[in-house]
Design a protein around this nucleic acid. Structure first.
Lengths: 243, 243
DNA sequence: TAGTGGTCTAGACCACCAC
DNA sequence: TGGTGGTCTAGACCACTAC
């Protein structure tokens, strides 16, 4: 039996194509975190490459933390630990810098909407769903977020029940739409409050504002979300690790 | 001819021992960045292992960014890549976000100094050397930096010639003191300008300020530098990748 | 004990670079 | 053209895990 690589430039090395193929199968949810993926020998046989090539493909996915090897028992899809991941994805802190905590969230708006230019450029489409949220720590509003996700990827998002929304969106993306956020780019800058933003955050007009623009990508490096978040500059703390 | 591994637990896999051995030879400065290290075939012959094992050892060092492969010409020690590394270590951008560039630097102060509490906590010592710099883009001051490094690690730093200082400190740390900055933690917040900071940055008192506090670590995860950098919030841009 | 990943070998051919 | 790293193969034996 000989399986096919997913469409991909066949000038690429076999191990790259196999890696992409496996990433795609993982993204499709073909394997759970409890069951091992096929053994290296089986994959080699199925895709008609040597075990060494399979190893190199799997190595890549292990480095990307999509897979996990367990000697003697098999190779497993690594369960997305959203708590940990989103801890790191959301690095706003209490003003004293003490405690990292996930802000609660109030949904203000959710509707099909034409993406503004900058979001459209990041996502590659103007056909999006817009989500507006106000996030609070201990009942105090700290962040005003406008989020755009591609309508095609998230079709049916408008019909979700409000109860489905927790404080975090990425688990929802994953559970309801199979979209796994793998990495993101944050762009930080400084601005001034006005209009709805000032009002929701209970700030005066022209109050100093921290602005975070994020583009989030899935396993296959496709942009799946663009958001802009604003909060009082005075209370703003952001920590990041550089390697 | 058969070279020896550096002392290391011989229960470890050959590729690990070879990696450690090569890392040690790199640290000793046995090869420059201009001359390739011995080819994979020669290393295999010298250490009496197969080329595949050499590849795996070298792969590790490439991942750690100690080595760099160049197809057709050889494998090179990656010391001079400070530009590239520091590109990432220093992610301030021109206000329009267009061009990443390394600001020039003017040395204002360099002296043995007792570290302030927060720096001492990060470094684990109060016995430090303090460096104050003003960094500019196109002649316009953009960042005011206060830097603390442990006096023990950097003994003789005070006696360095001003001419030794380029726009970047990390290459200097490496070349003169063998300290290789491997990762860092950045902590961002916003404040207000005052006193010397305002004056040097040509800002008005109370002008909004971006504040970056960084702790830098060496290969062995020992803190080797703490710094606080301040710049006009209005011109501030910081980009970071989250994975 | 059977099956898995972990290590290691000894080759092959290719793409690229410097001379 | 000769030497380098890049890819790939088809084996081998070992360490570990599950049953």
């Amino acid at each position: 039996m000989s399986a096919q690589f997913t469409t991909s430039d066949d000038r690429l090395p076999a191990y790259v194509r196999l890696r992409d193929t496996l990433a795609s199968r993982i993204a499709k949810g073909e394997w759970t975190a409890e069951q091992p993926i096929p053994s290296e020998a089986r994959l080699a046989e199925a895709y008609q490459v040597s075990v060494g090539t399979v190893r190199k493909a799997v190595d890549g996915l292990v480095n990307e933390r999509l897979l996990e090897r367990r000697q003697g028992s098999g190779t497993f899809v690594k369960a997305p630990s959203f708590d940990a991941t989103l801890f790191r994805f959301f690095q706003l802190r209490e003003a004293d810098g003490s405690q990292l905590s996930i802000p609660s969230s109030k949904l203000i708006l959710r509707s099909r909407s034409k993406a503004p230019e900058i979001a459209a450029a990041a996502l590659g489409t103007t056909d999006t769903i817009k989500i507006v949220r106000l996030r609070s720590l201990s009942e105090v509003p700290v962040l005003f977020e406008e989020i755009y996700i591609p309508a095609e990827e998230f079709s049916g998002f408008e019909t979700l029940d409000d109860a489905d929304f927790g404080p975090l969106l990425y688990p929802l993306y994953f559970e309801k739409f199979g979209v796994l956020v793998k990495r993101a780019t944050d762009d930080l800058s400084f601005g001034r409050a006005s209009g709805q933003v000032a009002q929701q955050l209970r700030l005066e007009n022209d109050a100093p504002l921290a602005v975070i623009q994020r583009t989030a990508f899935d396993i296959e490096n496709k942009p799946v979300e663009w958001r802009i978040a604003r909060g009082s500059a005075a209370k703003f703390r952001y920590r990041t690790e550089i390697t």
